[in-house]
Amino acid sequence: MHKTVLFALVILSGLSAGALAANQVIHQQGRVFSSESVTIKKGEALTFVNDDSIPHNLMSATKGSEFNLGSQAPGMSTDVTFKETGDVQVICAIHPRMKMMVKVTD
């Protein structure tokens, strides 16, 4: 129990620091990611902003790093924290030309 609480606190404090720091922002205007590849430190977050005029659906099928933001409407922003090192490919499920790589380092 004690360990679980400690674990939770560690996670929350880590997330808090990540949220307070200025995340790198990935834009999606014109059905294009603003960066083809970004490098971040383990535990840091990226902010995915839909500044396009239509919905997007960001996700990753990279093994161990799968996520799915679901339909993200124009004018919405979502932070995604990457906790393990490695390369994570992020795509838009709707628009096949939208692909980028997140390189998570120590």
Binding site: S65, G75, S77, V80
Partner: peptide, 12 residues
Amino acid sequence: GAVVVGETRRID
């Protein structure tokens, strides 16, 4: 997992 998705918020 290795990825944590935060809440989605509206921005200006």
